[in-house]
Design a binder for these strands. Structure first.
Lengths: 212, 212
DNA sequence: CTGTGAATGTGAATTTTTTAACATAGGTTC
DNA sequence: GAACCTATGTTAAAAAATTCACATTCACAG
């Protein structure tokens, strides 16, 4: 099939597939059917086949999918078959947590630079990385080939951080700050806000109570 | 309108609306039209009106929405007009970061208990909270009226953490661990995985390059 | 107190996403 | 090497979400 526009939901599910497939691999399962994978991911099996069809044909008819091959194929499809250099702007509580989070490098997103505009923080070493002044972003983005910017500033400084990053030639921004920002259309922008999961929880729990 | 089934996407957008409305409020804006709110949130204005219609009528025809009133209404609709007691299981890197994250209590999700099964961690004080053995969950859930469980264990221990929480009578679980878990159908379950935002970034950036 | 303007709330149309159904093709057996 | 079995890839149908379009209703002016 190999289509142009891929739903956001598909990308999110592919992440789940990789997760579950990795578990299968660890368990020693070599081949898996869309049916079995679907069950483990709590989705419909044609959903899986559809999602994969956006990128190509990865299975063997009558057999299923070779677990390792499928992991590799999905990773290649997503563009995570190589490392991505990231820069983090805003070394507060959340920023520090992300800098310490092992999963980043494990998943191929290498945080190579940490930036802040607070003179008390500049020069400090966090996780073996020196905090650098945000004004040095243009130089550092080039020097370290940073492609993705991670914003973990307070909300009121998120836009400025974005401006710095865009000016420095970054390609994409992941905004963890609880505020909307605007960037030129050629810059990829993603908002991370896990509180909506908590809101959903609150809503559904209260709704269930109300039903009783 | 006041409908039964509310799309997950609607909940996520309501979170955005609250965020943007709060900014409007801070700026001193009292009244806002769906058009203006939509622009600030990068969505369609009927989307906003539709989303709100699931819960009731909050606007004034010919005028718009009173910012403060709308914030209050959305919060009440979501069930976040009161505090929710949470317990966190798994005090590793991520767990500690969440315990330190001020935003939780600010948003009304109060982490009242921290649990771990590692004897070296038990008794340690993090952010003024003593880490308690996971086996004490049943007692603590009752004592502290915990309703939401946050799982931040390594993936291989997430299911056991979930079992403890369910056994202790928790109502909902937010799973930050990168693994699928199964719980009885009456327990609300949400997965948090911000890496899919990074995957989406990687994918779109590479796709854009490929286009050139 | 009636007319006007403006923006909501909603039903209908459109688009998108998901699910179902099945023809197709790879592997396996005889 | 032909027949059968199985699970994919894909097309068609169904469901869901989004957007459009407008009738409705409120505030305000004359």
């Amino acid at each position: 099939m190999k289509s142009e526009h891929i739903p956001k939901a598909t990308i999110a599910r592919l992440a789940t597939y990789i997760q579950v497939l990795s578990e299968f691999k660890r368990e020693g399962t070599d081949v898996v059917s869309s049916e079995r994978l679907a069950e483990a991911c709590s989705v419909n099996s044609s959903q899986i086949r559809k999602d994969l069809a956006y990128f190509g044909e990865f299975g063997v008819r009558g057999v299923g999918y070779y677990v390792q091959d499928l992991i590799t194929s999905i990773k290649r499809s997503l563009g995570i078959d190589r490392a991505w250099n990231c820069g983090l702007v805003g070394v507060g509580n959340l920023g520090r947590a992300l800098l310490r989070h092992r999963e980043f490098s494990r998943k191929g997103f290498i945080i190579r630079g940490a930036f802040d505009c607070d003179p008390y923080k500049i020069g400090e070493i966090v996780e073996g990385m020196e905090i650098v002044c945000s004004r040095q972003l243009p130089a550092k983005v080039k020097e370290l080939s940073l492609e993705i910017g991670i914003i973990t500033t307070p909300p009121e400084r998120a836009q400025r951080a974005a401006n710095y990053l865009v000016g420095a030639g970054i390609k994409g921004i992941i905004n963890f700050a609880p505020s909307r920002i605007s960037v030129p259309s050629h810059i990829l922008l993603e908002y991370v806000d896990f509180f909506h999961h908590f809101y959903a929880a609150a809503f559904h729990i209260r709704f269930a109570e109300h039903q009783e």
